[in-house]
Amino acid sequence: MTAGLMPGGAMAQTNSYYQGPVSDHFDGTRFFNPGVPNETRGLADMLKWKFGSRAAVWPRQVPAGPPDKPPARVAGSDGRLTFVGHASFLLQIAGLNILLDPVWSERASPFSFAGPKRHAAPGIAFDDLPRIDAVLVSHCHYDHMDLATLLRLWQRDRPRIVVPLGNDTIIRAADATVAVEAADWGDSVRLGPEVVVHLVSARHWSARGLSDRRHALWAAFVIDAPGGGIYAVGDTSFGDGSTFGAVAAAHPGLRLALLPIGAYAPRWFMKDQHVNPAEAVEAFRLCGARQAVGHHWGTFQLTDEGFDDPPRDLARALDEAGVPAQSFVTALPGTAFRLGDGGLERVAPG
């Protein structure tokens, strides 16, 4: 299950986090995915899933690589990317250190004693993180917005924190001193002289509890940096594929896409929330990126598939689509890549 509390139950009639003008994806109370019906599933569907299917049993510890010890900085267009685990990455490029959806907590949950527990340690020990300049958070589900980690980063480094609309309220409620920049789909935020992040649409939803469903916006990011753009998707469903084609049109020539490939079973329940590996391959084709890295698997058990089903299903989908396996890869936590002119190159842990 996506680590937001489900099902929704009764929704509050006022927005808990955001007040702003009506738009093509905000009705004055809740955000929504344009052009599609209300995709919220209720208690009956959740009970059907939980009592009608059997989840694979994950080992207590899943395979992971040795933890990375990144350099302090990486200058220029030859960037460095480390997979931390689940949807968390460290991107080092043009002298900036950028974290994506950082989660270092043991559980993706509002509780310390219950909820999805980590099956693989973070690919970088927190104390081995270089000074962080910017943090991008795609949405407020617990497996993407980890307040404990965000506050720890703020106390240590005072990074720029960029989030979609409404998510800033959630973070400031935990610590009012945190400076958070909230932006809408289509907005751009300059992180440095050579790096700009653009918020783009994703087809998903949001909630932290039972009465705040879709009160905060969700987004994906395109990071424009020397060497080409990087399309970072936290969570999305496929829909009609138009979100990915729109990214290709607005940001042609992407060097890399970070695409989710896990949390897709059972398909009848998850199809409106998460892509499966075959859809991720089609999303890769539509967005026009030269290469992709698959994430959102093997760390937190959110749904029914086995911990290693996503990379196996991805390999099968790539073969069936005639896409070279080396163009869309998976990695264990701790894996680092050099982003060079020739594409991704795995590097020895620092």
Rank of each mutant, 00 (worst) to 15 (best):
P66N: 02
T82Y: 01
S77N: 11
V36C: 06
W49N: 01
V74Y: 03
P67I: 00
A75Q: 13
L81Q: 04
W58F: 03
L99D: 02
D78H: 11
A55M: 05
F51W: 15
P70F: 03
V36I: 13
K48G: 04
W49D: 01
A94G: 06
A56C: 11
P59H: 15
T29W: 00
A75D: 12
T29C: 09
G79C: 01
R30I: 08
F31A: 10
A87H: 12
S88D: 03
V57K: 14
N33I: 15
E39C: 02
F89N: 05
K48V: 03
V74M: 03
V62L: 08
K48F: 01
N38H: 07
K48P: 00
D78K: 11
A94Q: 04
N33H: 10
A55Q: 10
P59I: 13
L81H: 11
P71K: 15
Q61K: 14
P63R: 15
I98T: 08
F32H: 13
R41K: 14
A87K: 09
A64Q: 15
G65C: 05
A55P: 14
R41S: 01
L81E: 05
R54N: 00
D45L: 12
A44Q: 01
G95E: 05
N97W: 04
P63H: 07
A94R: 03
P70I: 12
I93T: 15
G76S: 09
P70W: 02
G95W: 05
F32K: 04
K69N: 06
V84M: 15
N38K: 08
A44N: 02
V62I: 12
Q92G: 02
P70C: 08
I93W: 07
D78S: 13
A44S: 11
Q61V: 13
S88L: 02
R54D: 00
G35S: 10
F32E: 10
F31G: 07
N97A: 09
P59T: 11
R30T: 06
L99E: 01
A94F: 06
R30Y: 03
L99Y: 01
T82G: 05
L96D: 01
N33Y: 14
I98E: 02
F32M: 11
D45I: 01
P59L: 15
S53T: 15
L96P: 00
R73P: 00
G95M: 07
